[in-house]
């Protein structure tokens, strides 16, 4: 195995994890809520991608984005908003409930459709699974897509957050929501903006994951989200940048350890039974040494809910 190739693959995996982390981190910023149903949002987007079958790629991707944004906004309206002033643990349990609801909904539709296997194939942009050969490197186009999509999405988000009024309002709300409202920042608008953007990011992650695995099933996005959450906490959840770096680091580490360790193949979660132990051990060490997160600012305390 070529080390440079492993490195590039690891950056690709890290980029997808970073996307998921930003989607989770944005919503955490304004709601102080960790959305455990985020993986299922990715799943919904992936099913939307698979649904049209033979539509042009751009149309399928458009549908996936639309589905993720709508699902995300519906989630906010029916679950997060009524519970906004509730205990944090209530909100957390609610997101678990939504996650299971969506996942089991996906399972049920296979019973309804009387289909044998649990999975739908995705043909969108399947050509991107071809590898491009540069010297001794064989890198799949989808890896470049992952890195490119990550850079473009995060860059775009950075522009929104720093250059637009709604972006500034979102940042202010995530720092001190009460004071932001006193200045006229509309709570519902800011939260819906964050939730909608997190839906778009879920769709982008779904497109990359789906192209890479060429299929979608009820657990699509689940495992990745769990690892991202670990990365986000390890990095420091109360700042978008540190959360994103944490998730990138986890994705990077999983892919690199997975490919560099002996007896492992291309899909780290299933091929190497020691992998999660190695990763979790690293996370435990990180949190023991730096409880506020690996990338938290010096002297920063753990997050408090207003």
């Amino acid at each position: 195995m070529n080390h440079v190739q492993a490195l590039i693959d690891a950056i690709g995996e890290g980029a997808v994890f970073a996307l998921i982390a930003v989607g989770i981190g944005l919503v955490f910023g304004v709601l102080r809520l960790i959305n455990f149903a985020y993986g299922q949002l990715i799943m919904v987007a992936a099913y939307a991608l698979a649904f049209p079958g033979n539509w042009p790629d751009a149309a399928s991707i458009g549908l996936a984005v639309l589905a993720a944004v709508v699902a995300s906004l519906v989630m906010e309206r029916i679950a997060f908003r009524p519970l906004r002033t509730a205990d944090p643990s209530t909100m957390l349990v609610a997101t678990f409930a939504i996650a299971y609801l969506l996942q089991n909904g996906a399972l049920l539709q296979y019973t309804y459709r009387q289909q044998g296997g649990l999975g739908d194939s995705i043909g969108t942009l399947s050509g991107l699974n071809q590898a491009v050969t540069i010297g001794s490197l064989h890198i799949r186009w989808v890896t470049f897509l992952a890195i490119g999509a990550g850079l473009v999405s995060l860059g775009g988000l950075a522009l929104i957050l720093t250059r637009t009024s709604i972006g500034l309002q979102m940042r202010a709300a995530s720092m001190d929501f009460r004071t932001a409202r006193l200045l006229g920042v509309k709570a519902d608008t800011v939260i819906m903006a964050a939730v909608a953007i997190s839906g778009v990011l879920a769709a982008v992650a779904a497109v990359v994951l789906s192209i890479s695995s060429t299929s979608v099933n009820p657990t699509t996005g689940f495992q990745e989200t769990i690892f991202v959450l670990v990365g986000v906490v390890a990095g420091g959840i109360d700042r978008l940048v540190s959360a994103t770096l944490g998730a990138f680091a986890i994705g990077f580490a999983i892919e690199l350890v997975g490919t560099e360790l002996p007896n492992s193949g291309a899909t780290p979660f299933t091929s190497n039974v020691y992998m999660p132990s190695v990763i979790y051990l690293a996370v435990i060490v990180v949190l023991l040494l730096r409880p506020a997160g690996l990338f938290a600012r010096r002297g920063q305390r753990t997050v408090e809910r207003v």
Binding site: S165, L168, Q169, R171, A172, M175, D176, L183, G184, V185
Partner: peptide, 17 residues
């Protein structure tokens, strides 16, 4: 209750909201 991590100008822009 100023936003310590934002610039002075950004704080003022929030006032415009």
């Amino acid at each position: 209750r100023i936003f310590a991590q934002l610039t002075v100008e950004e704080n003022l822009r929030l006032g415009l909201v």
